[in-house]
Computed example of a mutant assay.
Amino acid sequence: MTDYTDEERQTLRTAAFGAMMLVSNADPGFFATIKESMAGSKVLAGSSPELRDLLKSGGLPQVPKGSPAEMETGVLAALQQSTTILQSKAPAELDGFRSAIVAACDKVADASGGVTEPETAAVTKVKAALGVG
Score class of each variant (00 low, 15 high):
Pro61Glu: 07
Pro64Tyr: 10
Phe30Ser: 05
Pro61Ala: 10
Pro28Met: 05
Gly66Asn: 15
Ser41Arg: 14
Leu60Lys: 15
Gly58Asp: 06
Ala32Glu: 01
Lys35Phe: 00
Ala39Gly: 09
Leu44Gln: 04
Ser48Thr: 13
Ser57Ala: 15
Gly59Phe: 06
Glu36Ile: 01
Val23Glu: 03
Gly59Glu: 08
Glu72Trp: 00
Asp27Gln: 07
Val43Pro: 04
Gln62Asn: 07
Leu60Ile: 13
Ala39Lys: 09
Glu70Ala: 09
Ser37His: 12
Pro49Leu: 14
Phe30Met: 10
Asp53Leu: 06
Lys56Phe: 06
Gln62Arg: 14
Pro61Thr: 10
Gly59Pro: 01
Gln62Glu: 15
Arg52Pro: 00
Val43Met: 06
Gly59Met: 03
Phe31Val: 08
Gly59Leu: 08
Leu54Ile: 11
Leu60Thr: 14
Asn25Glu: 13
Ala26Gly: 04
Asn25Val: 03
Arg52Leu: 02
Lys42Asn: 09
Glu36Ser: 13
Gly58Trp: 05
Val43Arg: 13
Met71Cys: 13
Gly46Leu: 01
Ser48Ile: 00
Met21Arg: 09
Met21Leu: 11
Ile34Ser: 13
Leu55Thr: 00
Glu36Met: 09
Phe31Ile: 04
Asn25Ser: 15
Leu44His: 00
Ser57Pro: 00
Phe30Asn: 07
Pro68Asn: 09
Leu51Cys: 02
Gln62Trp: 10
Pro61Val: 11
Asp53Lys: 10
Leu54Arg: 08
Lys65His: 08
Arg52Ile: 00
Glu72Val: 03
Asp53Thr: 11
Glu72Lys: 11
Gly66His: 15
Val63Asn: 07
Pro68Lys: 08
Ser24Glu: 01
Ala26Gln: 01
Glu72Asn: 11
Pro28Phe: 05
Ala45Asp: 15
Ser24Tyr: 07
Leu51Met: 12
Pro28Leu: 02
Leu60Met: 14
Phe31Glu: 12
Ser48Glu: 08
Pro64Met: 10
Gly66Trp: 15
Ser48Ala: 06
Ala45Gly: 13
Ile34Lys: 05
Lys35Arg: 15
Lys65Asn: 12
Pro68His: 12
Gly40Ile: 05
Ala45Arg: 10
Thr33Ile: 00
Glu70His: 07
Met38Pro: 00
Ala32Pro: 01
Glu50Asn: 11
Pro28Ala: 11
Lys56Gln: 08
Phe30Leu: 14
